[in-house]
């Protein structure tokens, strides 16, 4: 629901990078979006072309890597990938004493520029 403002945040960071690195045009931008980052990938893809229309990201290929949820058990340290509506419990020892280690990311990974 706030994907447009996320797109504007992306533009702001890329424009700052354009000044630092001296480029004028981005050919490809690679984003990492966690399943629990609060961002809907389809909505972001939908609003991206319009949001970037007058920027150096115009015509850039948008590459999005989605990252699923992974928890780590605080008792036995096992990593467990979690699918939707599954309890946040360790697959090895069953403990619910866990912490999220992946799936909340929302990052620009890299840019391919001219």
């Amino acid at each position: 629901m706030h994907e447009l403002s996320i797109a504007y945040d992306v533009i702001e960071q890329v424009e700052a990078a354009a000044i630092r690195h001296g480029f004028k045009k981005v050919n490809q931008i690679h984003l990492l979006v966690g399943e629990w980052s609060g961002v809907d990938v389809e909505a972001l893809q939908f609003c991206f072309p319009e949001a970037t229309r007058k920027t150096c990201l115009k015509d850039a290929h948008l590459l999005i890597t989605c990252k699923g949820l992974t928890i780590q058990c605080l008792d036995c340290f096992e990593l467990t990938p979690i699918s939707r509506e599954q309890a946040l419990a360790c697959a090895k020892c069953g403990s619910v004493n866990t912490k999220i280690i992946e799936g909340k990311e929302l990052r620009i990974v890299d840019l391919d520029v001219d």
């Binding site: 960071q13 290929h61 990974v109 890299d110 391919d112 520029v113 001219d114």
Partner: peptide, 14 residues
């Protein structure tokens, strides 16, 4: 991307 492209690592949170 075309071969002339440079890759810039970013990495920061959006």
């Amino acid at each position: 991307s075309t071969p002339v492209s440079r890759r810039i690592e970013m990495g920061q949170a959006i």
